[in-house]
């Protein structure tokens, strides 16, 4: 055991380092190869800009891109916030009454399975304010994973624990507060991670739709606009920002989920055998 412990520690440390180093090395190698291909073949930047050019554009066009990034971020997080509050509240309502769940759940599903790109033009027609319209689109996409995951979680409390609460005369509110909501946390956080990515997708898709119907100033609109002007480096720069935002959201919610569950949930607990 005394021999095994340090070697296991060493292999764990190696794994931790590899987790960062390997993907970074591959990313770096691809960027270098990309830059080389562009330079060796003298590909014009309006067809395919190299990564250095894109980085330069990010720097020089920051004045245009930064406000667009802020708009996209604001819509994404606002939509997510409304989706979290709405999805969670509706899930709690569903958990309180089977009748409500039976009545409304199919509509939530219909909202989810209809592609947002098909609904967005209609919403943009009926809602005057473009920002609000985009927000609604992003919300529609983000809200379902929260609702369905949280509903599942609220229903999955241990049956014997429910009996125990009943035995001690717990009120409906106490069962919800001390049993159902904690039991639903891992499910809710899983839904949140999906919804974070989806709200970004929703806001980008809606912006694309809005870009033709009205005025917009988010990152997606910048991509459209750069396309019209054949400003391909800026297109790539905007695309890179959207990707970064997506990665950032994913990392953020993974971290939140880990912090919330690390003491007790199997998904976040490190096993020692």
């Amino acid at each position: 055991m005394s021999d095994a412990a340090p070697s296991r520690e060493r292999s764990e440390r190696m794994l931790r380092i590899a987790r960062v180093v390997l993907p970074s090395a591959i990313a770096l190698a691809s960027l270098v190869a990309w830059e080389a291909v562009v330079r060796v073949n003298a590909i014009p930047h309006y067809i395919l800009p190299g990564p250095l050019m894109i980085a330069k554009t990010l720097w020089t066009d920051w004045g245009t891109l930064q406000p667009a990034l802020l708009v996209t971020l604001r819509i994404t997080f606002l939509a997510l916030a409304v989706a979290v509050v709405g999805g969670f509240a509706l899930a709690v309502l569903f958990a309180q009454s089977e009748w409500i769940e039976l009545s409304f759940f199919p509509y939530a599903v219909i909202l989810q399975v209809t592609p947002i790109i098909a609904i967005a033009p209609l919403i943009l027609i009926y809602v005057d304010n473009t920002h609000v319209a985009i927000l609604i689109c992003a919300w529609i996409v983000a809200f379902f994973p929260i609702l369905s995951n949280t509903t599942l979680g609220l229903h999955s409390a241990d049956h014997n624990l429910v009996n125990l609460f009943q035995l001690y005369g717990a009120s409906r509110w106490q069962v919800l507060r001390y049993l159902r909501i904690p039991a639903a946390m891992p499910y809710f956080l899983g839904g949140l991670r999906i919804a974070g990515g989806l709200s970004l997708i929703g806001s980008v898709v809606a912006e694309f739709a809005a870009g033709t119907a009205g005025q917009g100033s988010g990152l997606a609109f910048r991509i459209l606009e750069s396309g019209y002007r054949l400003n391909i480096p800026r297109m790539f720069a905007a695309l890179a920002l959207i990707s970064f935002t997506g990665i950032l959201i994913f990392v953020l919610f993974t971290a939140i989920s880990h912090l919330a569950l690390r003491r007790w949930h199997e998904s976040a607990v490190k096993r020692e055998n």
Binding site: N160, L164, Y178, L179, P182, M185, R263, W264, H265
Partner: peptide
Amino acid sequence: FQEPTLMPWA
């Protein structure tokens, strides 16, 4: 109960 039936988060 037959199982410990504890709240794992507490």
